[in-house]
Each structure stands twice: as C-alpha cells, then as structure tokens.
C-alpha cells in the first residue's frame, strides 16, 4: 500500500545556486499528485530530493524535512540507499540496462540487493510486468531479448516494471512520457491511473493536459518555489494565484 509524504521546509542547492526555496507539501497516500511548472522551475529537482537522488550530482545538496510514511528521509540515521529502495523512480528518458534481458532488467533491483529465491523472483517479475501492462507483449521473449531491443514506449513500461519489482511504497515519475509518442503516452497515463491503487504516485510533467488527466492534486512550481498546491480541478479552473493562472492559460512558460 502507498504511504503519504510530508515535506517541510525543503531547500536544495546546486553548488551556490539555490534551486528550491523552503517547499512545504503534503502528498496524499494512494493518490496521484502532479508537479507542473516551466522549464528550470525546480520541479525535477523537487522529486529528486524526495528519494535523495539529488545528492548524487556533484556539489548538489538538500536540507529540510521529508517524511515518507514513518521514514524520515533526511533523518540523521537515514541511509540514501535504503530510502531509494522504498521510493521507486521512473526517469524522463527510458533507461533500461542495455546488456540485460527483459527478465534481468525487471529482476535487477532484487538480484543486486541479494534476493535469491528463484520462484518468488519469477512471480515478482511477472506481477511487475503485468502491473506495467507489458507482460502480454514480452512474455515469450523474457530471456531472449535485451531490454534495449524494445520500442521507446515499451522500454518506459519496462522501467516502470523494474521500479515496481522492488515493491516500493511511493513511485516518483520525472516526465515519464515526454520522450514518447501519443499512443505510448496514453498507455502510460492509463497505467498511472491503475498504479495509484497500490502506490502513491508523484509525477512531474510539463504537459498540463496530462496533469489534468491523471492527477487528483497538482502543485505549481515557479523559480524554485511552490506557488500553489491544491486539487487539480481547482488549479485548472479557479487558481488562487495570478501566476498560476498566467501559466495555465499559456501566458508564459
């Protein structure tokens, strides 16, 4: 089951440049929350802070409080590797492991963390591929084909299956459909809708229609600050802030 996320006073920097200013946000469990905003507004940085991926970039750092369920992500005893195990991530560009088979791609997170039970692994791989709506297309070539041999849309669903296989509580998606064609995009969006039954999903998107289609809640970022955060419907029909209105009506960005 998914868990909620509590973000309080989150700041992030790249070297000396501050890219997030004191973000507060409460993400509801088992719902889809979209993060929108113009390029460079900090929306990707924001989700990368939630699972401590931000700090893997040289000279990048983050401060503040992020609680995912009971887990204190930036607590003193917190291990980034453990955090990332419980918070899955899907990236903008599909990035399957090119030298691994489809099966090994999905099983990678399990295998490389020391999971050895073969039968259980088979089940988890099948379950994850089914959840990612890819099973029917690849079940006959699980071990024969490389993950890189799939089409772009299939690769992205493979990456989603790979993230789901380690059974995270939260799934972060950083513009997961921006490199895909409209048909693959609609498949991914359908999938996101299904996924919220089991997971809490946070999705970054620069496509406002996409946010409107998949998310119950939407946050609007501008220049490193969270300008407005509310029910998606409210954001897109009667935004409280002038800047939000300007952005969603296409006046800038």
């Amino acid at each position: 089951m998914g868990v909620g996320i509590e973000v309080r006073g989150l700041n992030a920097w790249y070297g000396k440049n501050q890219s997030l200013n004191s973000i507060d946000m409460t993400v509801a469990a088992n719902h889809v929350t979209a993060v929108i905003g113009p390029s460079g507004c900090g929306k990707s940085t924001y989700v990368r802070c939630l699972n401590r991926m931000h700090e893997t970039i040289p000279e990048a750092r983050a401060e503040g409080s992020v609680k995912v369920g009971e887990m204190d992500v930036y607590g003193s005893g917190s291990d980034p590797v453990e955090v990332r195990r419980r918070i899955g991530m899907v990236f903008q560009k599909p990035n399957p492991f090119p030298t691994m088979s489809i099966y090994d791609n999905v099983a990678a997170g399990l295998k490389l963390n020391g999971f050895r039970n073969r039968k259980q692994m088979d089940e988890l791989v099948e379950r994850s591929l089914k959840l990612a709506a890819l099973w029917e297309e690849v079940k006959d070539s699980l071990h024969k084909k490389s993950g890189a041999s799939l089409s772009g849309g299939q690769q992205q669903r493979l990456c989603i299956a790979r993230a789901l296989a380690v059974e995270p509580e939260v799934l972060l998606m950083d513009e997961p459909a921006s490199a895909l064609d409209p048909i693959s995009t609609s498949k991914i969006e359908e999938l996101i809708f299904q996924l919220k039954q089991h997971y809490t999903v946070v999705i970054v998107t620069h496509n406002m229609q996409q946010a409107a289609r998949v998310a119950e809640f939407t946050g609007f970022f501008l220049m490193g600050s969270l300008i407005e955060y509310d029910k998606t419907e409210k954001i897109f029909t009667t935004p409280a802030d002038k800047r939000t209105e300007d952005y969603i009506t296409g006046r800038f960005g």
């Binding site: 990236f91 399957p96 090119p98 990678a108 380690v166």
Partner: peptide, 21 residues
C-alpha cells in the same frame, strides 16, 4: 549516466552499480 541513475533509483549501492551495471 542515466544508466547509473536507474540503478541508484532502485536502491542499488554504488559499488554494486559500478560492478554489476
């Protein structure tokens, strides 16, 4: 680098990522 990020995102430690990915 996106390949390394994919591995980190799965909670695979850096040494494991380097050797196995």
């Amino acid at each position: 680098n996106v390949i390394r990020e994919a591995a980190y995102g799965l909670g695979i430690p850096k040494w494991r990522t380097t050797l196995s990915i």
